[in-house]
């Protein structure tokens, strides 16, 4: 049945032995990300879209919007929500059906990174305070699972958001009517994330699927351009010490800045 999820004892030993020598199975250093490949704006009917490969992990994200009523506690702010779906062809481990816990986790962690840390200027997504605001749907589809979907999802979501063009509206008879123009999603900060995998005392970034299957646990940090942490997620049945968490939060800020500079995602912002 779920045969791939039974962890191979020899594979775990192999990965652990390498870590002891300061090495990883694909030759990367402990703090190296895999190569990132980005294709932007590939879906004509989406307001924004991106296809992102992190190594062999592959996620396509599309942005759709709706015009709806704001939350009562933030009447002049728009809303953004993330969803992740694992397409069954992405891994022999996935089966068709409602999203499993892992997909929900990917969506939630990416969502928190975007929701906080001054990523989207929600006030600019308001059409009429208390009545009409933009609701953004950030929908991630996992096309191929080769490890570290959280970081892949974050890059993919942010790129898709940056490519997004929304039709602008005026109010006529209490309804939003197109005024002939378009706007970008107002993005102040680009949060990206870094995930640390851990086996015994060895901690490394961007675990590949073979590593992920034998991890004791992991912790993800989303960091914005100001160098502030805006989301965290610890998972796996292990514990982390205070010193470790402080150490890795600092490394996370460095790694995310490095990644963000390298990817230069603002290059994908379209001209209006």
């Amino acid at each position: 049945m779920d045969t791939p999820q039974v962890i191979s004892t020899v594979q775990r030993k192999y990965i652990l032995d390498l870590l002891k020598q300061g090495k990883r199975m694909d030759g990367r250093g402990f703090l190296d990300f895999r190569e990132v490949r980005i294709d932007d704006d590939l879906i004509p009917k989406a307001e924004g879209s991106a296809s992102v490969h992190l190594g062999d992990s592959f996620i396509i994200t599309g942005i759709k919007y709706d015009v709806g009523t704001p939350f009562p506690d933030s009447p002049d702010e728009g809303v953004a929500t993330c969803m992740a779906e694992f397409i069954p062809f992405a891994s022999p481990m996935f089966e068709s059906g409602p999203p499993d816990v892992e997909a929900v986790e990917v969506a939630r962690v990416v969502d928190r990174g975007i929701r906080h840390g001054d990523c989207i200027e929600y006030k600019k997504l308001c059409i009429k305070a208390g009545e009409l605001v933009y609701i953004l749907f950030i929908d991630m589809y996992v096309m191929n699972h080769a490890g570290n979907l959280i970081d892949t999802g974050a890059i993919s979501s942010m790129t898709a958001l940056l490519t997004t063009k929304l039709p602008t509206a005026k109010i006529e008879d209490g309804k939003a009517v197109w005024n002939g123009g378009y706007m970008l999603v107002p993005i102040n900060q680009i949060p990206l994330s870094v995930t640390f995998g851990r086996i015994q005392d060895y901690v490394f970034v961007d675990p590949v699927i073979d590593e992920e299957l034998v991890l004791d646990g992991r912790v993800s940090f989303a960091v914005n351009e100001k160098g502030q942490i805006c989301s965290m997620q610890k998972s796996g049945e292990i514990t982390w010490t205070e010193e470790e968490l402080i150490k890795y939060s600092k490394i996370a800020v460095e790694k995310v800045n490095e990644l963000r500079n390298k990817l230069n995602l603002r290059q994908y912002v379209p001209k209006l």
């Binding site: 191979s8 020899v10 192999y14």
Partner: peptide
């Protein structure tokens, strides 16, 4: 069967 020469558990290397 794992009875036979060179058959049995793999305890090192990678696959």
């Amino acid at each position: 069967t794992t009875v036979g020469e060179s058959l049995g558990k793999i305890d090192e290397g990678t696959i």
